[in-house]
């Protein structure tokens, strides 16, 4: 068990380095970071500035330069370590990160750690709520349809779950918004955070938007696994012991049938972050997704890298927890 956790932590570290380095490198290769800081003057060739520094040409309009352009470039390079190569800069970024310093936005100079602190909890709460909605619906639903497999309820469920699976998030979000906010005015139309109750209300519709499709996925998986488990001898044994059907479904069959659901649960958390991006837009929720889109659109690499790193760490951590859950679900995993 100890070894298992250590191995997992090593994996976590590796994934973290891989994701952050690739993001870092690609954002540096795709665009010139200098352009994002100083604008068009980043196009001034290095030789020209070097010539200015040596006093060979004058730093005036006649040579196509504005007064102080070269100084500005030099300062920007200095501040953001742009005169160093990508690997070196990555190293600097890592050590800053380790010290809790995420850097600042190139565009508006905001502290990134503030952005993360402000945005991350909202998205985390949204995703957690969406998963709760999904599991809360999928478990009783899957159990009910597997209990009477291929009968009326199960067949109706199949139609229903495929229906839910085929509605895209944004469409579902808009439909929910129309009925629950516009027509019946049960839920607020925009995000507000005056205490946990108002936030819960504001996050309910987005959570259902994300969670319903997931619930359908989980229900399909759980149903199939349950039907297989119900063929097992220990289920017959439990029935021969005279246990109630309810007890057999929830206490005997459910746990050994949760593997696919748990696996997909972990993997889907990544997809949920992507889904949250769209849903956050529809419901105007100030979460990581919204910020990430904005940062990409305004060419703000430090913010993008920081947010992606946070998401990647979260994703790996969740899958780590999922792996630990296998051990809880099946004691045989623990010993092997």
């Amino acid at each position: 068990m100890k070894q298992f956790i250590l191995r997992r932590i090593a994996q976590l570290v590796l994934v973290f380095f891989a994701v952050t380095f690739l993001t870092f490198a690609s954002l540096n290769l795709v665009g010139d970071p200098l352009f994002n800081i100083v604008g068009v003057i980043s196009g001034i060739p290095d030789e020209q500035c070097e010539a200015v520094a040596r006093g060979e040409i004058e730093d005036t309009k006649s040579s196509g330069l504005n007064m102080g352009d070269c100084a500005l470039i030099a300062q920007a390079k200095e501040q953001n370590n742009l005169d160093k190569n990508v690997v070196e800069r990555y190293g600097i970024w890592l050590s800053d990160m380790a010290g809790g310093d995420f850097g600042t936005s190139f565009v508006n100079g905001d502290e990134i750690s503030d952005i993360v602190q402000e945005r991350l909890p909202v998205t985390v709460r949204l995703i957690v709520l969406a998963q709760i909605v999904a599991l809360g619906i999928a478990i009783p639903w899957g159990v009910a349809s597997a209990y009477r497999a291929n009968r009326t309820f199960d067949k109706a469920s199949t139609v229903g779950s495929f229906g839910l699976l085929s509605i895209p998030n944004f469409a579902l979000g808009v439909i929910l918004l129309y009925f629950f906010t516009l027509r019946w005015q049960i839920f607020p139309s925009r995000y507000e955070n005056a205490g946990w109750w108002s936030e819960l209300k504001a996050l309910t519709l987005p959570a259902f938007t994300l969670g319903l499709g997931l619930a359908a996925t989980y229900q399909r998986l759980l149903r199939t696994d349950l039907i297989t488990t119900l063929q097992d001898d220990f289920i017959h044994m439990a029935r021969a012991k005279g246990m109630s059907d309810r007890h057999i479904m929830y206490r005997h069959a459910l746990r050994p049938s949760m593997f696919s659901v748990i696996t997909v649960f972990g993997v889907n958390t990544g997809a949920l972050i992507g889904g949250a991006l769209v849903v956050e837009q529809i419901f105007s929720i100030p979460g990581v997704g919204t910020e990430l889109v904005e940062a990409v659109l305004r060419n703000d690499p430090p913010v993008v890298i920081a947010l992606i790193s946070v998401v990647a760490i979260g994703f790996v951590l969740i899958n780590f927890v999922v792996d630990l859950t296998y051990g809880y679900l099946d004691p045989r995993v623990r010993t092997s």
Binding site: D232, D233, F234, H236, M237, H252, R255, P256, P331, R332
Partner: peptide, 8 residues
């Protein structure tokens, strides 16, 4: 081998 619930 199969008539006991493996997770209980």
């Amino acid at each position: 081998m199969t008539s006991l619930n493996p997770v209980k």
